[in-house]
Amino acid sequence: MTTRQRTTITVNGTRYEREVEPRLSLADFLRHELHLGGTHVGCEHGVCGVCTVLIDGCSARSCLTLAVQADGAEVTTVEGLRDRESGRLHPIQQAFIDAHGLQCGFCTPGFLMTTLELLRDNPEPSDDEIREALGGNLCRCTGYQSIVESVRLAASRLRG
């Protein structure tokens, strides 16, 4: 059988060291080894974007990455968005609530993480740029219009 690999991943600022099976995806590692269940899994073959996290600051589908590949990496998940001290929601999270950017909420963590990257790189995106950035995230509930509005609202609040 296969040899487990010692893997060290920093998630939301906390360093975790685990012996993992090589075939374990980063998504399953986060969810079932670290019990960070906010990163959801929608297709496990890299199409839906539900499992999006940031790896070293870049959005990635955690179902398309092995946990062992992320050895040494810094991973940010939806659990890392809230302010640690106060528990306050991140402005992006709050904007999704205020602009009704979610319904069932299952795809939402993926949208939030993708938006986090977008607004970091481009604080004032046009609607087309928002759409381009979110093209890899499927939502079956909202029809996306309210999501675009949420991102726009978040952008304006983050710019202050």
């Binding site: 790896i55 870049c58 990635a60 589908r61 398309l64 990455t65 093209g135 890899g136």
Partner: peptide
């Protein structure tokens, strides 16, 4: 090629 998340990795 694909989407941003794919191009990142």
């Amino acid at each position: 090629v694909g989407h941003r998340q794919i191009r990142n990795r």
